[in-house]
């Protein structure tokens, strides 16, 4: 049986930014929670090497897509929370547009009758 394949490495890398942007669009969040949520939502099929998310976050912050702040959590430990900036919203919209295009192309090709 063809069972729950993991996503290809390139696709995972390419999906990192749109996923993080879309997730942060739902509210500010911190690294560990972002990883957990993606893992849960993809049923574990999309897995990051945990540490690799942080360079991605930092780069996105560097590019002005997101911003961060240190905040104390309920447990009293400090966590670095990230949230979307205006440029991030724009970038997210663009990502969605492009991924939808690829998706509709794929589905269209599969469903279209052979000529």
């Amino acid at each position: 049986m063809y069972s729950s394949p993991m996503l290809r490495k390139e696709l995972v890398a390419a999906a990192a930014e749109p996923l993080v942007l879309s997730l942060l669009a739902r509210g500010e969040n911190y690294g560990y929670a972002i990883i957990q949520e993606i893992k849960a939502r993809s049923n574990g099929k999309l897995q990051w090497t945990d540490g690799m998310l942080y360079p991605v976050l930092h780069r996105m912050e560097h590019r002005g897509l997101i911003k961060s702040r240190w905040r104390e959590s309920e447990t009293g430990r400090k966590r670095k929370y990230y949230s979307l900036k205006k440029d991030g919203e724009k970038a997210m919209a663009k990502h969605h547009e492009q991924w939808s295009l690829v998706h509709s192309l794929l589905t269209g090709l599969r469903e279209a009758p052979h000529v």
Binding site: E10, A13, A14, A16, E17, P18, P55, V56, R59, R63, A91, K94, H95, Q98
Partner: peptide, 8 residues
Amino acid sequence: ETNMNASS
């Protein structure tokens, strides 16, 4: 860009 889509 490390991500394929970092810049569109």
